[in-house]
Design a protein around this nucleic acid. Sequence first.
DNA 1: CTCCTTCTTGACCGACTGGTCTAATGATAG
DNA 2: CTATCATTAGACCAGTCGGTCAAGAAGGAG
Lengths: 210, 210
Amino acid sequence: MSDTNGKMKWQHEGVENPLNGNTALCEAALDVFSTHSFGEASLNDIIKAAGMNKGSFYYRFYDKLDLYLSLLQRLSVEKLELFAQYDDTNTEDDFFASIRKKAMLGIRFARKEPRYNALSRRFLTEELSFRETVVGVFGGVTENVLLRMVENAQLKGQIRSDISVQMMAEVFAILLERIDRVIMPDMQDYEVLGKIDELITVLRNGTAVK
Amino acid sequence: MSDTNGKMKWQHEGVENPLNGNTALCEAALDVFSTHSFGEASLNDIIKAAGMNKGSFYYRFYDKLDLYLSLLQRLSVEKLELFAQYDDTNTEDDFFASIRKKAMLGIRFARKEPRYNALSRRFLTEELSFRETVVGVFGGVTENVLLRMVENAQLKGQIRSDISVQMMAEVFAILLERIDRVIMPDMQDYEVLGKIDELITVLRNGTAVK
DNA sequence: CTCCTTCTTGACCGACTGGTCTAATGATAG
DNA sequence: CTATCATTAGACCAGTCGGTCAAGAAGGAG
């Protein structure tokens, strides 16, 4: 770990992510890391479940953290690919229409790979030093895009101006983050869309009677 | 652990919670359990930080789980005491006034003991089997009071009826749960009240311009 | 065949875990 | 004083952890 410095072994050597060819290891790592914290996750379990040997693992990875980072990288690539299909940064949508689209994309990915959501939420409960290490490798990807969306919408007069933008952005962020609590796994697509529209309605018009 | 069956040693023997007289152990356990998952938390660290010996610890507790449960019990008693001072179950408040009061109480306790919030949120990310064990001891305390508040308010015509009660209750629950993200630790009391009122306004009237 | 590199194997390491147990200590009673 | 009790002390246990390493297998090049 002290040797790693948060870098990935395969990145040093300009080789592709060693998880790419190894679906067994990828699945095992995702299973374990999405259900256990980094410290609690047993590397032995992962390796055993993947049908691998310790030596082979350490031939390709520096350590446990290297595997974790490689997994995050693979997942973020997959997510970006999905989101890229629906890129709307240039369209001049209504604010709530943008939020709606964002929520739909998030749910689509979450339903495709539920373990990813579990993993990223679990990451937020890791120790601060660990989070800093990981963020240090992946860079500040988490720049607050929501806050700027809200600021923009307020300037355009699409949302009320008597509430601070920080508060609004936070409300949207919290709800988008836990949107899975509203969407059940057994729902049909049209039901999911209905739930999202309900949520957007609440955010737009509130819950009180008019 | 197999001997424990999820019960607390001191409950068996009708003695008071052994954490009560031992502030050092209580503080150490709260420190560690609020920053680490149950599995990751080191009992050795807790005992050392409390200036205790292993033998003394195991004289009073069955095991690590017993300590964890005793800590939860103590905290829940403290929280109930605080909430009891402001019991409003019999008053005929407006729905949003009730929510406002609930949010204020939650924040008051969270600011008094921030580690408790961290602990209870961390509990939700523990393994299912562990959560079931703990819930089995404490009973289904988590009966959804919010859902019934929403149903009631809808019957009284205080909130709109075109959104499902489940959705609304979930939205309120999610936001109440993460209300700490909106309240900064260095805020004065009047600032906190202002933030809560902002949040209530959003929930009541929405974010769109009228 | 030999030589060399790449990759695999699994025994092994020290550190740490939750938990046990026996011997010693302190206090109180008769 | 002795006897009995509750409590403390910490060495010790088996098991797991992440990580290392020397030996050998596999395969291509000459």
